[in-house]
Design a protein around this nucleic acid. Structure first.
Length: 665
RNA sequence: GCCACCUUAGCUCAGUCGGUAGAGCAACGGUUUCGUAAACCGUAGGUCUCCGGUUCAAGUCCGGAAGGUGGCUCCA
């Protein structure tokens, strides 16, 4: 900060070497960094690009400044409330407060919003000020802002500490200020429209051992039209919500007697089964075998695997009546060890280790890929449950690959190919890859973790896949590659995963005999493509808005009669279609045609076929799809068409997405 | 788990100041036999999530529980 060349962007822009400063300029960009007009920088004017109020980057700055105005309003209305942090986020902004009087109500939000408008209407400038570390700590301490003091104390020794002030009506110029690195708009006049959306508790620094703060979420846009468009998008997201569609389309259901454990109704079970069958069909090509394993195990299994030591809080520990009686006899106040004699499995890997160890294994058997669609139970905390996306009872398209260390690379490559073939088939385009590294609670040596993490990273680098690192997020037995997609509401969910594991084979003492007759330890890869079938279905329902493609739809077509006279023809045609393997409904109710079409459309059926006297006469149907009227189609053509379109992506002739991988196996 | 909010018919939702339960859709019965997004008439459907409290009286007010919804670092 002693560098003499430093000037603010406002000064640089004023020199005439760039575009002249006008009222629409709210910040500049240097490379990827957004810098406001208040902050001194050492840069040449040529390195700057101007951010105007209508540039996409401006929104972030506007929202951050709006968060400041909100904090100002809150402290005016609720004296004694401490401010903490308030960043701009993807869809708006939030600010966390410590309010001694407890949470904010919806009424409070309205008052705050009103106060914010008053402050914004005053149209006063933002001002940046640099202070020394000592002065900053002294300042915030004297104000009783203990969170800010804690923040400053955590900064690097050489960090520049800045305050941002803006004026609010009835106060001295610049009297409200906040510790902040910016960037901020030049003036409150540059802000747009604001809407406070919700309140929520949030732990200080996301740490549940720290105080619970009150978070207020809001969003801000340049214009009312933009805000309205955003609100409309939110409405659309709600219409696609899989929990809503699950109910409307009678796909699945929950009952409080089995919290977070879905019941799949006939229509949902139909889709579910087809999903699993599709994965099974791929396993044939990719060289997997399927096993079926028990549900409940003696606790010794999970002691061996380490689950009881590392995963206990997520496990269901079933108790039999007999066990309960024993407990009652031995220990009236109930003892834990007895309760843990049996465990519901939370993962399939331990039983697969048992199977591997069932007999002597040869190197000729490796890589050995065993798949399992067993039902798993995991106790998830109440607050994290969400429709089908996070449940306590589910099944994965799970498989474990036992192989030699040399085979890891090829197995990873082949899995990657399989996974993207599947994601392409479901038309998931924005898949994000994350590499989760060793967690605090873990098995195995550092050398094992080094090797495993490197193996995963190598495949990513080789294929040129962009990825993000997640330190500390790996499974307790190995690092993970995670494949993430976004739901209709913008939430991020992990679907597929692949994990390299040296630890479990070690704990189970697994061995294979190599070509020299020596015993060797295999490596184990844990992998899933859909991840949990439940979650996948939930995310996919939102992805396709409940309009399942032909091969997944519970019913592929509904035959709609115009009047009673066509009922025999419809019944006859339905039977022909069923004989050809088509899933068909008949609507020969006394509803009028318009109502039948409406009902069929609301069910998101791929096809509707209208049958009136004319169609009976011509042995045809008047076909329509989600897109609209497709005209008259003969019975023979209809059957052919539905059968062809109803095939899953890889069952018969390879589709565009299946062709590349079809060469393998 | 923690913070806030929600829970009334199968679904979506009304229910005023505390005075004893309503609509639409769906279901069922009947009438209608109809040509591209909702025909008409009628019937039935309720432990107002559960437990407790206040009150002459509770869907409504208070406390607790269960289930659900949003959120719990995208770091000043």
């Amino acid at each position: 900060m002693t560098e003499p060349a430093r000037q603010t962007a406002r000064e640089l822009l004023g020199t005439g070497t760039l575009e002249p400063l006008d009222a629409d300029v709210i910040a500049v960009k240097i490379g990827d960094r957004i810098v406001d007009l208040h902050t001194p920088i050492s840069a040449e004017p040529s390195e700057l690009s101007v951010i105007r109020r209508d540039s996409p980057e401006a929104l972030e700055v506007i929202r951050h400044s709006t968060a400041h105005v909100m904090a100002d309003a809150v402290q005016r209305l609720f004296p004694g409330t401490q401010v903490t942090i308030g960043p701009a986020i993807q869809s708006g902004f939030y600010y966390d407060f410590d309010r001694p009087d407890g949470p904010f109500t919806d009424k409070d939000l309205q008052r705050i919003e009103k106060e914010m408008r008053r402050i914004m209407n005053a149209k006063r400038p933002f001002v940046r000020e640099v202070v020394s570390r000592e002065a900053a700590i002294e300042l915030f301490r004297s104000m009783g802002e203990t969170y800010k003091v804690e923040l400053i104390e955590g900064f690097a020794a050489d960090a520049e500490i800045s305050l941002y002030r803006h004026a609010s009506p009835g106060r001295q110029e610049g009297s409200w200020f906040d510790l902040c690195s910016g960037p901020h708009v030049p003036s409150t006049a540059d802000l747009g429209v604001v809407k406070l959306t919700s309140v929520a508790g949030a732990y200080w620094r996301g740490d549940e051992t720290r105080p619970m703060l009150q978070r207020i979420y809001g969003t801000a846009f340049r214009t009312q039209e933009e805000l309205d468009r955003y609100l409309e998008q939110q409405e659309e997201a709600k219409r696609r919500d899989h929990r809503k569609l699950g109910k409307e389309l009678e796909l699945f259901w929950f009952h409080e007697y089995a919290p977070a454990m879905p019941f799949f109704l006939p229509r949902g079970a139909s889709v579910y089964r087809r999903l699993v069958d599709y994965i099974r069909s791929l396993y044939v090509r990719y060289g997997y075998e399927e096993v079926i394993t028990p549900q409940i195990f003696d606790k010794r299994l999970f002691e061996t695997s380490g689950h009881l030591q590392n995963y206990r809080e997520n496990m269901y520990l079933p108790v039999t009546a007999e066990t309960l009686d024993e407990i009652a006899q031995q220990e009236p106040s109930c003892s834990h060890p007895a309760l843990e004699n049996l465990s519901q499995k939370p993962m399939n890997c331990p039983s697969h280790c048992l199977i591997f160890g069932q007999r002597r294994r040869s190197y000729r058997e490796l890589p050995w890929r065993i798949a399992d669609f067993g039902r798993l139970h995991r106790y998830e905390r109440g607050g994290s449950l969400h429709g089908l996306a996070r449940v306590r009872s589910f099944c994965q398209d799970d498989a474990h690959i036992f192989c030699t260390p040399e085979q890891i690379h090829e197995e990873m490559r082949s899995f990657n190919e399989l996974l993207f073939e599947v994601y392409r088939a479901f038309e998931f385009k924005d898949v994000r890859v994350k590499l989760a590294l060793r967690p605090e609670k873990r098995l195995g040596t550092e050398a094992m973790w080094d090797a495993a993490e490197q193996a995963l990273e190598a495949v990513l680098k080789e294929s040129g896949t962009p990825y993000e690192l997640l330190p500390g997020e790996g499974a307790f037995y190995g690092p993970k590659l995670e494949f993430h997609v976004t739901d209709a509401l913008g939430r991020d969910w992990q679907l597929g995963t692949v994990q390299v594991d040296y630890a479990l084979p070690e704990r189970f003492g697994l061995e294979y005999v190599d070509a020299q007759g020596q015993a060797n330890r295999p490596v184990m890869l844990h992998r899933a493509i859909l991840g949990s079938v439940e979650r996948f279905l939930g995310v996919y329902i939102e992805h396709c808005s409940g309009k399942f493609p032909m091969w997944l739809a519970p019913e592929q077509i509904s035959l709609l009669t115009v009047s009673e006279r066509q009922a025999p023809f419809a019944a006859e045609l339905a039977q022909k279609l069923r004989d050809a393997g088509v899933r068909v409904l008949v609507d020969d109710s006394s509803d009028k045609l318009g109502a039948k079409i409406r009902n069929g459309r609301n069910l998101r059926l791929p096809y509707l076929a209208v049958i009136g006297d004319q169609e009976v006469e011509q042995q045809s149907v008047a076909l329509r799809s989600g897109e609209g009227d497709l005209g008259s189609v003969s019975v023979a053509d209809l059957i052919e068409r539905l059968v062809a379109e109803g095939r899953p992506p890889v069952a018969g002739a390879p589709s565009a997405s299946g062709a590349a991988a079809g060469a393998r196996s």
